[in-house]
Design a protein around this nucleic acid. Structure first.
Length: 575
DNA sequence: GCCGTTTTCGGCCCGACTGTTTTCAGTCG
């Protein structure tokens, strides 16, 4: 079994965890985590790169030592350093650092003083009130530890954007109503449109005398079940459902700097601050400072400009080259919802959708679209009552009737046709030729090997009726891994054959990933941002796909459905 | 462990909150 990037990522992160509880140099720990992130965001396979004799130490955050370690992992499947660390440090000790208020130092100290090796030891020691007597600890800390152990069990790690949207909006509106509040925004990974968020970072700007009221309104919100900490400018609460929310209150003149700081990402902020340091500027959440003098901070634009950078959109702030691009004036002009002319993937009641063709089309028109592709399932998908040739033809007649009598929206004849196990399509070519376009997707036999899955998709692309590859990796965020397809080969084939890839906007799919979007752009493959809507309401999922597309640096020209239909029609003609 | 128009050492982002102290370390984001 060839070593995958994910194996390397996991090993490096585990080394970092273990080094941390051992009390190693924090910068050394960070080096392992940075390297893990670099590998995680590579579009290509590290094993292949080594095969081609590429120099891994050229990658950001990877020097000679870590390049050598990667090489060892690829060759042997493991890392001797990790084995050695594991033999010395029980993994249970790492788990303890997940407890609120317990970090590596305290875990290390508890082990040294009381021989605590596991959560069970820790619980027993706390219950026997052994911890409160240690220097630096006390009764409160002991209580916090016991509560922390309880919480650990039911803790959800990350939430889908869609699942936190409602609560984010509720808090935003609630705080906006407080007297003296000028602006409220939800920053953090939520603003950067990451696929999932761990918590919500809320930022409020207000006058000096209303700070207290804002904090009070925050911790008193009806959805708050616990106040973790409460200060004058910063508080943390847990909301119903376990989601953590942080509020920061700042003065208006610092709002831009605070927005920048609390939007992150951490890696982006570190890089920006380092750049500031080179220019003798100190950057914190209150502003940009030259000595004691504040030289910027009211807006984010100001902060960037002071550093000689163009404004960087939140979705790009991951330290993946955006700072260098901003220095050179080479940032992408990111695609926006307004650029979209239509949606190329939707379902109706004929299969597993909830609305009729007319209702879907009307809703698409109401959203300002010029066209909507109706792409019901094909016969293979029996659970969704997929269409055979006869039922599809009936639908095509219905579409003709609709288009003849309706103005302002065009329904495109299409289908989400299954890519069968052998790479053939689920309906005969003669009927597929009658359609305006096809979305071709894998639904069954998802757990074949990577090479067979890749072959299956490439065979499907050989079919001249193949246009768009639907939800290209099949992953369901937090529930099902992507199938092990070789994306580089798929993109190569798509570029060669004139096919397209979908970015499916369902909030639990968001399939393609941001990294693969970047790779597609680089290889000249255009992306269709589609909702796969199963109801009128789901047409609005486009905002999630758009966030992902923007994280993938896509511009309007990189996206298929920013074009009018007559232009797309020409692009769909295969050589 | 990485990195360098300050390059082989000595930095590595910066501040708030808590619980413990009585001026601060640890943790967190």
């Amino acid at each position: 079994m060839p070593v995958k990037n994910r194996n390397i990522v996991e090993i490096f992160n585990e080394v970092a965890d273990l080094l941390e509880v051992e009390g190693a140099n924090p910068f050394r720990v960070r080096a392992y985590r940075n390297a893990a992130r670099t590998v995680d965001e590579l579009s290509g396979n590290v094993a292949d790169m080594l095969e081609k004799d590429e120099d891994l130490s050229k990658l950001p955050g990877i020097g000679e030592d870590l390049a050598e370690k990667i090489s060892e992992i690829v060759k042997t499947g493991e890392l001797s350093q990790l084995k050695e660390l594991q033999s010395r440090i029980p993994s249970e000790r790492v788990k303890m650092t997940a407890i609120e208020g317990l970090g590596p130092k305290r875990v290390h100290f508890l082990h040294r003083e009381l021989g605590i090796e596991s959560l069970e030891d820790l619980k027993a020691a706390a219950e026997k009130e052994k911890i409160r007597h240690l220097s630096g600890f006390g009764p409160k800390m002991e209580k916090k530890i016991l509560e922390g152990i309880e919480k650990l069990a039911g803790k959800k790690e990350r939430y889908l954007l869609k699942d936190v949207e409602e609560i984010a909006e509720a808090f935003r509106e609630h705080l906006n109503k407080v007297r003296g509040v000028k602006k409220v925004m939800v920053a953090g990974s939520y603003r950067r449109c990451r696929e999932t968020v761990g918590d919500l970072d809320i930022l409020a700007a207000c006058g000096k005398d209303s700070k207290g009221e804002v904090m009070e309104a925050f911790v008193d919100h009806e959805d708050v079940v616990e106040v973790v900490s409460r200060g004058e400018t910063r508080s943390t609460v847990i909301a119903r459902g376990g989601l953590q929310l942080d509020l920061r209150v700042v003065a208006q003149e610092s709002y831009g700097a605070a927005m920048h700081y609390f939007t992150g990402s951490k890696a982006h902020n570190i890089a920006v601050r380092r750049l500031g340091g080179e220019k003798n500027l100190k950057i914190n959440e209150y502003g940009v400072f030259k000595g004691d003098e504040r030289v910027a901070g009211k807006t984010e634009e100001e902060v960037y400009h002071k550093l000689g950078l163009a404004y960087i959109e939140p979705e790009l702030r991951e330290n993946r080259g955006e700072i260098e691009a901003a220095q050179k004036g080479g940032l992408p002009q990111l695609v926006t919802l307004e650029d979209l002319r239509g949606d190329l993937h939707s379902h109706t009641r004929l299969t597993d959708g909830r609305n009729t063709l007319e209702e879907m089309a009307e809703a698409a028109r109401a959203r300002g679209y010029d066209y909507l592709a109706v792409t019901d399932h094909s016969q293979k998908v029996t659970v969704a009552h997929g269409l055979d040739v006869k039922r599809l033809r009936t639908q095509l007649e219905e579409i003709d009737r609709f288009n003849d009598s309706s103005k302002g929206i065009r329904v495109l004849k299409s289908i989400e046709v299954d890519i069968l196990e052998d790479g053939t399509l689920d309906l005969p070519e003669e009927v597929l030729r009658e359609l305006d376009l096809t979305v071709c997707s894998v639904h069954y036999h998802q757990n074949m090997s990577g090479s067979r899955m890749t072959e299956r998709i490439l065979r499907a692309m050989d079919n001249p009726c193949f246009h768009i590859l639907g939800h290209p990796t099949g992953r369901l965020i937090g529930r099902r891994d992507a199938y092990e397809v070789d994306m580089e080969k798929v993109l190569e084939a798509a570029a060669k054959q004139g096919c397209f890839l979908e970015l499916n906007s369902q909030p639990d799919r968001l399939d393609l990933s941001d990294v693969h979007c970047m790779q597609a752009k680089e290889m000249g493959v255009k992306i269709a941002i589609s909702t796969d809507a199963h109801s009128i309401a789901e047409l609005d999922f486009m905002r999630f796909g758009m966030g992902q597309a923007r994280r993938g640096w896509l511009e309007a020209k990189d996206v298929l459905n920013t074009r009018p239909w007559n232009e797309i029609r020409k692009m769909l003609r295969r050589g």
